[in-house]
Design a protein around this nucleic acid. Sequence first.
DNA 1: GTCTATACTATGATAGAC
DNA 2: GTCTATCATAGTATAGAC
Lengths: 211, 211
Amino acid sequence: MRPLPRSRLQVQKEPLPRTVPEGTRRRILEAALRLFASQGFHGTSIRDVAKELELQPSALYSHFPSKEHILAALVQVGHEAHHEALRTAMLDAGNAPEAQVRALIRAHTVTHATHPLLAVVVNEEVNALPPELAAPALVLRQQSAALLLQVIERGVALGRFSPPHPVATAAAISAMGVRIPYWYEPGGALDIDSLANIHAELALRMLGARG
Amino acid sequence: MRPLPRSRLQVQKEPLPRTVPEGTRRRILEAALRLFASQGFHGTSIRDVAKELELQPSALYSHFPSKEHILAALVQVGHEAHHEALRTAMLDAGNAPEAQVRALIRAHTVTHATHPLLAVVVNEEVNALPPELAAPALVLRQQSAALLLQVIERGVALGRFSPPHPVATAAAISAMGVRIPYWYEPGGALDIDSLANIHAELALRMLGARG
DNA sequence: GTCTATACTATGATAGAC
DNA sequence: GTCTATCATAGTATAGAC
């Protein structure tokens, strides 16, 4: 096993959302998250995870029934945090399509910039799961995508948006957030809140919103 | 080994650019490309590749010295095709920043939509390579990224573009193309040329180009 | 350039003591 | 809940015949 590449993926103080309770289970998820993000799920052995925690490999099986279940837990946590952030943002947004897009995109961007390791694992490794373990997360993903598309289509119906192609534009808007972990450096000159505002502005420009 | 998930990644007639000559070497690269795209590099064994070609595993070593070298060849081919497409597009674009952006983004989108498997492997598995095998491709990647940023900054200097943040906007524009393999279906209602025009339009909107 | 055979290592997971 | 010990399998790669 080669000593990790992907130095672009920084070490983080709090790689997992606070919804995951403290304890050995959380420590396993944190170690697995770092390793899966840098080496991939298949590139990481149960022994790698155990070594990172200074445990014996067998000790992990008291907390998770298999390596796949560790990944499944990460994927689920990531999708839940993302979906919850979008849902909460919509509650505060009022009924103007512009404000709704701004709220959704800000939440989308903040989530990806705050938990970049989780975003990478969720997006690159979900396919390593058997369908039954991936399914709950994929339902959430579908709902989140549908939420953005509905807001866009309502804006079009109200004459406030004029995207060249609603579905392709929704994909382009979503892509900005998904790609954050691959270029954005959290400690740098651009803070997360500013990036979120930039992405909201770009989304509204793509939609042809006035003002 | 589970029977492949990722049904979203379609089977393609010509998954590799024509720059790769016919022969066993190309057939190995094509089989490895399909498998790496659907199961990942670490999730694919040399036995899987051999089985796909109805060869014995040892036969592969007459063509490539290691599994890593197969991936390295794919990553290099992908980056070369992409970089060459951008370079050629710029030659035809003239000196107007709007036309240059349109040419670059059209080429970026066409490349990703035409070779989605290669795009996925190049972007998700390049980290599985040791630095010395990844280096040539990363040079090309950096040059391609710099090309877009230079065009944007020149447009800003000429007063034709007004992006909220040139670097973040360049990343957002690039992200549209990179994410194509994850949602776009080549056989569907939206053809590649139309998608390329949509992405060019979205890029110019993000940049605040007039007209 | 492909085959058979095999060396050697790494892997996911389990058994059973404490 | 963690340990030591171990199993069964799968992994990359090589040797040598044809």
